[in-house]
Design a protein around this nucleic acid. Structure first.
Length: 201
DNA sequence: CATGTCAACGAGACAG
DNA sequence: CTGTCTCGTTGACATG
């Protein structure tokens, strides 16, 4: 499940150079990429209440949206925290953010995305399980169909006593069963299904 | 270059 | 109203 390279000694970040952009930032909506400038350095702002510092570049152009890459250590600690709890209260979030040198919003987003990935994984597992179940039910269905055909063939033909000698017909539920399993045991579920008829005299 | 991954976003729903 | 959630999406990178 390691999504990061195994080179544990190298904990460097993929940090973009501010102001460098290979493609023009396509402004999505109104708030897209609003905080990117402060996030791409992967650290807390110098002052917590100074969140809305000026985002403008030297030339006043819109800041390009740069991708933050969490370090191995940050990912590990976040995963550990996620294993303990899939949601965080504000205090935990703040503490984790301070510990990881990230902003609380980044912690929040990470947990949101992590929950989404977890749910996706769960859904995929359930899908696989249902596929296998469907396969086994299909197989069982085929087997039962073959059995029905065999029994029909016996019923249509003359009442010979060859292989059908081991079969008995349950008069109540009209089911054919083998002699090994008495018809009474088959009749029980049918009675359970329709309980109102108790006295029949 | 197509595709996958993942941080980040906005919209809408919901609880307190 | 505020805070947080899910959901769907975007955009920057990584990779084959």
């Amino acid at each position: 499940m390691a999504i990061l390279p195994e080179n544990s000694s190298n904990l460097d970040l993929t940090i973009s150079v501010p102001g460098f952009s290979s493609s023009p930032p396509s402004d999505e909506g109104s708030g897209g990429g609003r905080e990117q400038l402060k996030l791409d350095m992967n650290r807390l702002p110098s002052s917590e209440d100074g969140e809305d510092e000026e985002l403008s570049h030297d030339d006043g152009s819109a800041p390009p949206r740069k991708k933050l890459r969490l370090t191995r250590e940050q990912s590990r600690l976040l995963e550990d925290s996620f294993r303990q709890n899939h949601t965080l209260n504000p205090k935990q979030k703040e503490a984790l953010a301070q510990h990881l040198m990230l902003r609380p919003r980044q912690i929040e987003v990470w947990f949101q995305n992590r929950r989404a990935r977890s749910k996706l994984k769960q859904t995929e597992m359930e899908c696989e399980y249902l596929k296998r179940w469907f396969g086994s039910l299909t197989e069982q269905n085929h087997r039962l169909h073959r059995e029905v055909e065999e029994l029909r063939a016996m019923k249509v033909g003359p009442p010979t006593v060859n292989s059908a000698s081991s079969l008995t017909m349950c008069p109540r539920c009209e089911r054919v069963t083998t002699a090994a399993t008495p018809p009474n045991s088959m009749a029980v579920p049918a009675r359970k299904t329709f309980p109102p008829q108790e006295r029949e005299d």
